[in-house]
Amino acid sequence: MDRPIFHFALAALVALLLPFFIRSGTLATEVLVFAIAAAGCNLLLGYTGLLSFGQGIFFGLGSYTLGLALIHTTLPLLPTLVLAMIVGSVVAIVIGALSIRRQGVYFVMLTLAFAQLFYFLAYTFSDITGGDNGLIGIPRRGIGPLALNSSWSYYGFVAVIFLISFAALQRIATSTFGRTLLAIRYNGERAQAIGFPVRAFKIAAFAVSGAVTGLAGALHALLIGIAPLSDIDYHMSESLLVMTIIGGTGNLFGSVLGAAFYLIVSDTLSAIWPRWLLLLGALLIVLALFIQKGIWGLIESGVGIVRGRRGGPDAMAPGVSGSERP
């Protein structure tokens, strides 16, 4: 069950089945949008070992880029999305390059401080971003003859982008590049000693992650018609990390599960009890104590028990054996 094609089939299944389980087209679209962003976060956290608290920056910049482009220019939709990816990627390269000068928790603190810097930039320059009110009135342009004005037609559009992004990230994760990132995550000192310029590879990982996250942010702004300040704040970075970790790090489909779980549960609970974050907090503590591999880890051990643990290391992905352990 570690073959990439199997995971892609699962992702396609999720995109296909969501409309049957979720009545709100907006919520269903949000699941896929955040799944893209969480997978981008996972590339850094699960594959490179970089816990970036700055993912909200790339997400928010994606939102603003798309909003500004659609409001102030006549660019068609697809080039706008590409533009959001470029902006996300370029900023990610700069922030990545600055942050990886420190390691471990210092790195985490730096990325969080950068997240605050960009939040206050967006808040302060409200002429451009709309500040607290967000950038409002973003038109949802169609693509050629395809109008995207109903929530389910937009869902279809996002689903296609989601699957393309997922496949691309899978390809990257299993490439020589992805394997090198994994090596850096497991043992950066050794990776450097066998000749890899570790910093350059970390920055490259940031570039990919920034592009993917920027794309997700753009799709989010297009979904709700505004680029809200909350797309770039501390809580966005935090939520993206939480989704990634809940789903299970080091596994791209885990991020899809994490995003779906987080959004559906928060949607359900917040309707019942406004203080549901208390439960989320408790869940995170339980996760750290008992479910360190996340939902995907739970599924894997569940399958392992059912199969009676017949599959040895040979059943694992080629080259990668053993499962994640903290």
């Binding site: 990257i172 020589t176 394997r179 090198t180 990776a191 066998i194 000749g195 890899f196 310029p197």
Partner: peptide, 20 residues
């Protein structure tokens, strides 16, 4: 394989080439 790749590390930036 990774150690062998380390001699020509920039080739490992190929994001589309499967490691195998």
């Amino acid at each position: 394989r990774l150690a062998a790749q380390g001699r020509t590390p920039w080739q490992a930036l190929k994001m589309w080439q499967p490691a195998e």
